[in-house]
Design a protein around this nucleic acid. Structure first.
Lengths: 179, 179
DNA sequence: CCGCTCATGTAACTGGTTACATGATTTA
DNA sequence: TAAATCATGTAACCAGTTACATGAGCGG
């Protein structure tokens, strides 16, 4: 039994949590988070949902509203088992390790720019970061109110990450002032 | 002029920093970091290097050692301009925002498992994390000694990120003890 | 001389992406 | 009734991956 891709697992998980629900509802979760991992594009979600159904991880029922055709999906027992397996078999290094970070990637080559340009870019990053932090903090507060500890922790992780990045940028700005 | 992909930009940047150098040397940088963003596989690097050369961003010279054929590459003026442009045009949200994180992805669905299993997984994560932190800290110390502030900051960012993730896991473990 | 590492490369695949197409429903 | 949004889907593409192939050079 082929392993679940990251996106497949997340879609399956969302259908478990929110189901029965439509693929469109799943998309909205991706489209609305302030820190999306995936685009949530139709071109990704619909094929994933179809795959999950043919593999027996989710089942669907017609759900006509007016003359619009629509299907609602829910996770099957097999699907839950697959999702549990996916959670348990995730002790590899790449799960624990440092995730990719486009800002860090760019930092490596800042030496190519003049000191002035460098400072300008880092300054812009810091400004954008503050704006981003506000958005994520808002999402965090909203989740806190729901009372679901997992939802809370999810947003908390995103926020803490941004804080650490902010500290890092502050440290970098200080260092670059002398270089 | 088509934009540089992330990997293309990094390879170009590494050739700028370390050049003249062979594609193999570039690969080693990816293969040796404790926190790789890309696999550094031959199937990725060699095509990227070829592409960069046909686009005029790098130039090569034969560098025969014995009867083994080999080429060394260095960044061209055009290449440097492209790299600068890549750095400057990076104020988008996704550069500043929360990068994808497989551990956070999984956290969302921990509610599916029994409290015991949940604690076991988080415990394993925390243990693995400590091991990982030691590796990255070692790399950080090594870079610190080189005196290059950008190299230093790069490793510093990775380390700070891991610290924030450790704090997050500690907070999560505490919360889950009650749930 | 056997096995390991150096070094370069190709082929097939994969897991997404963007862009497009279509029609129903809601809102201004 | 026009524009926006809901909702479902397809097609073409793309940037990476794994796996494989090949051969040189070197250490035990």
């Amino acid at each position: 039994m082929a392993r679940l891709s990251e996106l497949e697992a997340v879609v399956l998980g969302l259908i478990w949590q929110d189901g029965p629900c439509t693929p469109y509802a799943v998309r909205q979760v991706f489209l609305r988070t302030p820190s999306p991992q995936w685009s949530g594009s139709a071109g990704a979600i619909y094929p994933v949902v179809q795959r999950l159904e043919t593999r027996g991880f989710i089942r669907s029922e017609a759900h006509a509203q007016g003359r619009r055709k629509s299907r609602r999906y829910r996770a099957s027992t097999r699907g839950l088992a697959a999702l549990k397996k996916w959670l348990i078999h995730s002790q590899q290094d790449w799960v624990v390790g440092v995730p990719p970070d486009p800002m860090r990637t760019r930092y490596r080559f800042l030496g190519l720019l003049s000191a002035g340009r460098r400072r300008a870019i880092v300054g812009k990053w810091r400004k954008n970061m503050e704006r981003h932090i506000r958005a994520v903090a808002e999402d965090f507060d909203a989740r806190k109110k729901t009372g679901d500890p997992f939802s809370y922790l999810l947003a908390r992780g995103a926020l803490l990450h941004l804080f650490s990045r902010r500290d890092w940028l502050a440290e970098a700005a200080k260092l670059l002032r002398r270089n």
